[in-house]
Every structure is written in structure tokens, then in C-alpha cells.
Design a protein around this nucleic acid. Structure first.
Lengths: 193, 193
DNA sequence: TACGAAATAGGGCGATTGTCCTAAAGCGTC
DNA sequence: GACGCTTTAGGACAATCGCCCTATTTCGTA
């Protein structure tokens, strides 16, 4: 079952290259070169390029799922958990600076080329949306939670896009601080109840 | 000088297709088919694909410049002018829904493929950034104007990205309303002085 | 040790990519 | 009407694309 490891190697390499260069500009030859296998061997593991994309998206979803679970284990408060989400921008700033948000850029690329896997990429957003929504339900009225989740998701997307464009560290730090302030404000407003 | 019109036709077609499908996925054949000229004729007007991209970016800059000047002519107050910027999301919602923000998506695509024209695409952002900054200087202390401009730019980018992903009209309307409220708040805070 | 399935290498498929070249057509000026 | 520049069409270029096929090697299991 050495083939299973090769398969995972392909997915890992594709994951990174789809992120760095984009789905369409990444060729089989690129991935094969990185994994050090022949191009022909590809089609023993995947029927088509689309299939690799689906696997990559699934892997990204699994990775994020694990991350969210870790946050829930490590952070006692909803505010702390949401803060961990905001901190992604800081933790991954080197990559975001060069290649943007892995989820946002993939989603918009797939939208442009009208790729059927677009919806599965959007599901990556939904993963965070629902998780954030559950967290905000602890800080605000339940009917406002999803709106707050979307607002924060949008704000982090905007910060990532502009950071990728201008590559200004001060801007990113400023946005992260503003998001944390906003989060604290949301949390405080709940307390009077 | 009929060739000048053909050249402009090429730029117009490329502009639209680079927006809808992206720069790399758009081929010369695609553009030629749309303009109804032969592929060979391309190289009489442009030396390479990169050159078309540069012209497209320049045209976008010129278009935006005109738009900003119209806003300055038509809107008496800084708040009104900034509101016009926010309204882009509403005016172009059909296109944003399908293809995202023309500036944001181009910038991140060029970043990924490490295209030398990336900086010129970022200049499109800078155009809005400086213009917004000048407007905010009327509503807030001068040293805060650029920060406010970047904050609004980021927020509109985030709204465009998530609207393109989820295609939820309610979300977009909600974000636009929130931005207008925020803008009014910024304007009001100035008044006590 | 022998067998059969899994895994791999490598070449080749037609189509398409950006680019270039050449010949012909269009057209303003004498 | 003849000239010369601009514009155009269309084919050909090598390279690359995703994809497929087949021969060979690897390797777990009987």
C-alpha cells in the first residue's frame, strides 16, 4: 500500500500549488515534478484533474475541521475562540502576503472558470461561518449570530485581500486590532443582560 | 486609421474577458473570436499578451478616474461622495455575484502567477485609496484619513468576496447598510469640533 | 517461490497555448 | 491609376495542456 502514500503526496503537493499559483495555472507536470513521479502515474490515482481538486478541497475541509476542534478544546470562552479565528491572519501572514487567503482565492477562481467544484469550495467558507455563528450565539442574541459571523468573515477576507495587494504589515496589524476591539465590544454588549 | 478602433475593440474585449474568466484562462483565440479578427492580427497591435494586460489595466484606471471625477462633480459633500463608492457594490452586484471585484480578483490572480503587472493592478486600488483618503480628510483628522480609506476599501473587498461566494442578496444589502451607518458615524463624530 | 494485483515509468494522443511569418487586402496621397 | 504604408488573414511554429495506453517493476499473499 505504498500507493496510498503517493496519493497523499499528490494531494499535498496539489494543495500547496493550487494555493500558491492557482488551480488552472498549475499543471500535472508541475505536481508530478514536485512529488517526483511520472505524469502517467497520475491517472492510476486520479481519473482527472477535477478529481484532485475535489480531494484537495476535502483535505482542506478536514484540516480546518481539526483546527476548529483544537480551538474549542483550548479556549474556554467564545470570545477567545473567535479571537483565534482572527489570529489566522497573523499566523499565516507570510503566505497571505504572497498568495492571499486559500479559501477566498480558490472560491473566486473557481467562480470565474465556472468550475463545478465551486460549491464545495464555498463549503469551506460555510464551515467557518457555521462555527463562528455558534460562537457568536454565546455573545449575542441567537438571531444575530449568523450576521455577526458573516460580518467577521467578510472583514477578514477584506483584510487578506488588501494585505495581499499592498503588503503593508501596519495595515494588517491595525485591522487585526480593530477586529479584536469590535469582538470585545460585541461581547461586552451582552453582559448587561 | 481603422486599426485604432480594432485596437480599442481588442482592449475592450480583453478587459471583459479578463474580468469574467481571469487573465490566464483567457486565450488569444477567445479574444479574437469575440472581436471577430484573426489571431495573427493580434501581433500587429500588441507585442505580447502582457502588453494587452497593461493596456487593460490602464483603461480600467482611466475609467475609474473618470468615475471619481463624476462623483466629485455630482456630490456636494464628502459623505455623499464616499457613499457613491459604497454604492458600487449595489450598482455592479450582478457582475460581482458572478465574477467578484474586477480589481481585487485581478490583483490576487497576478500575485499568484507572479506577473510583473501586479503592481500596476495594485495601483487601481491606490487610485481609490487616495481618493477615499482625500474625502475622509473632510470628515476626520487628517492623520486618520488614510486608515479610514483602507478600512472601507477592505470592507468592500470582503463584502464582494463573500457575496461572490454565497451569492446572498440579503447579506450584500446588509453590508452596504452597515457601511453607510459606519460612514454616517464617522461624519457625525467630526461635527462637535 | 510463484502468482496476481497494485504501482510506476514513459511515451504518445489530439487539442490548445502564445508567438511569429508571410502574403494579400485596404486605403490615403501623389 | 500607381505607389507605399497600414491593417488584416491564415497558416505554421515549438511548447504545453489534460489525458490515455502499455510495458514494466514492485510487493503483499498464498
Amino acid at each position: 500500500m505504498a500507493g496510498r502514500r503517493t496519493r497523499d503526496d499528490i494531494i499535498d503537493a496539489a494543495d500547496e500549488m493550487f494555493y500558491r499559483r492557482g488551480y488552472e495555472p498549475t499543471s500535472f507536470a508541475d505536481i508530478a515534478g514536485k512529488v517526483n513521479i511520472s505524469r502517467g502515474n497520475f491517472y492510476h490515482h486520479f481519473k482527472a484533474k477535477d478529481e484532485i481538486l475535489k480531494e484537495v478541497i476535502q483535505k482542506r475541509a478536514a484540516d480546518r475541521q481539526v483546527m476548529l476542534e483544537v480551538w474549542e478544546r483550548e479556549e474556554a470562552t467564545a470570545e477567545g475562540r473567535i479571537a483565534r479565528f482572527i489570529d489566522i491572519l497573523d499566523m499565516n501572514c507570510d503566505k497571505i502576503r504572497l498568495h492571499g487567503c486559500p479559501i477566498g482565492t480558490l472560491t473566486s477562481e473557481l467562480a470565474k472558470i465556472e468550475h463545478p467544484a465551486r460549491e464545495e469550495a464555498v463549503a469551506l467558507f460555510t464551515l467557518f461561518r457555521n462555527w463562528l455563528s455558534r460562537q457568536f450565539a454565546h455573545l449575542a442574541p441567537e438571531n444575530e449570530a449568523d450576521g455577526l459571523a458573516m460580518a467577521l468573515l467578510a472583514r477578514s477576507q477584506g483584510a487578506a485581500t488588501l494585505y495581499n495587494a499592498f503588503r503593508d504589515d501596519d495595515f494588517l496589524r491595525c485591522e487585526i486590532a480593530a477586529m479584536k476591539l469590535w469582538l470585545a465590544d460585541v461581547a461586552v454588549r451582552r453582559e448587561p443582560q
